[in-house]
Write a protein that binds this DNA or RNA. Structure first.
Lengths: 220, 220
DNA sequence: GTCTATAGCCAGATAGAC
DNA sequence: GTCTATCTGGCTATAGAC
């Protein structure tokens, strides 16, 4: 938007550019609408139940238009995951700008943020058992680069927390990472929310506690 | 099989019974084959990716024969879950015959058993987001009775463990129950197994530890 | 690029002979 | 009850007009 206004203040040769930029802007807005529709649908009903017809309806366009932007349903899922990973990376980078915070607390903040996203219906989750989809994602460089980048950044904190005895060092660091990813789409959050008895804040607090402190009572 | 041999030793009136019983036995064997095929397929590829054609092939019969025993794909899933719940109830009842064991240790044993089942490819899991399937299960009395029975039995231990300060009493008992069910199909188990670096025993130990003791290092 | 209309396919479910 | 063969509906993906 800002870019479009800037370019549009120029002359006639530039009119072509402005028109192009305008079209590009429209394209981008429509792609955003698609990806956000996919994100919501993945969060609410899951990949298999989501249809491209629903995506088109939710994004306010015809199905064929969706396919002009994305070649397949799997690419739609990939685009939504890329955007979700970007949100996660932005949050992590914000945390990294506060290097004084203990590594364990950074990890807790990430877990909390992920579960908050899930409560807000903004955390897409994909079936880990769909092999075709998994293969498509693993061939998606935009997706893999972000996934590896996020994993690396989290692994730094995990290693720090383990060497400083904030996190159980007898657990493999790889497993800590898996658990953090798994808790981001933990069905327990949804079940507690569905029960309707608890506030979001209670749910966040309890799930974070059970993840980092466990179910067992801690010795005083 | 044993019953068939017993009945078959009788006379001619009984021959009819024997023939009926034989047929009934055959029916039961075939239904068993179906349900176990569904169980394996649910554990390996999930409900949405599982096709009734695969079920029939795995059970060694034609698809139409599967539909003579079960009216729909959803009923197939229900039958597999009923059988899984029966296995869980049998294990829990065995544990209950040792009332001297602390409630917390009983719960740990159940969690460990569930994850062992998952490692063995015997723990079916269903998509919690498929509303049609959820509705079908909630209308399935055989399923609901067992689910409630299992929940009740686990809840007794949960309450005991909380009142005796073995489990964090500030967490809702309902949530402890949800976490136990969720860990039974925790994707972390499958990810660790897929990495190929760890033994089943290590995986069981680590996941149990992280569930009950948490990720954080415990004060010595 | 956007739309309407449709092709193509696959999977759940059934018909009908045996 | 079991089978082969088929129906049916819905979903991914595309053709073709504008």
């Amino acid at each position: 938007m800002y870019l479009w206004v800037f370019v549009a203040t120029r002359g006639s040769t530039i009119d072509t550019m402005a028109r192009l930029s305008y079209k590009e802007q429209v394209q981008r807005v429509r792609e955003d609408a698609i990806v956000e529709a996919v994100n919501r649908l993945l969060a609410s009903k899951g990949y298999d139940s989501m249809t491209v017809d629903e995506v088109a309806a939710e994004a306010g366009m015809a199905k064929a238009s969706v396919y002009k932007h994305f070649a397949s349903k799997e690419e739609l899922a990939g685009a939504a995951m890329v955007r979700a990973l970007d949100r996660a990376l932005a949050f992590v980078d914000e945390l990294r700008s506060h290097p004084d915070v203990a590594a364990l607390d950074q990890l807790k903040a990430v877990a909390r943020w992920a579960m908050q996203s899930q409560l807000d219906g903004e955390m897409p989750s994909l079936p880990s058992q769909n092999s075709s989809l998994t293969a498509s994602l693993q061939a998606n460089d935009e997706y893999m680069d972000r996934l590896i980048s996020l994993s690396n950044k989290l692994s730094i904190w995990i290693t720090q927390a383990q060497t400083s005895a904030q996190i159980n060092a007898s657990l493999p660091a790889e497993m800590i990472l898996y658990i953090l990813f798994a808790r981001a789409c933990d069905p327990v959050v949804g079940m507690l929310k569905a029960s309707g008895q608890y506030t979001n804040e209670q749910i966040l607090e309890w799930v974070t506690t059970s993840t980092f402190e466990g179910l067992g009572a801690r010795p005083q």
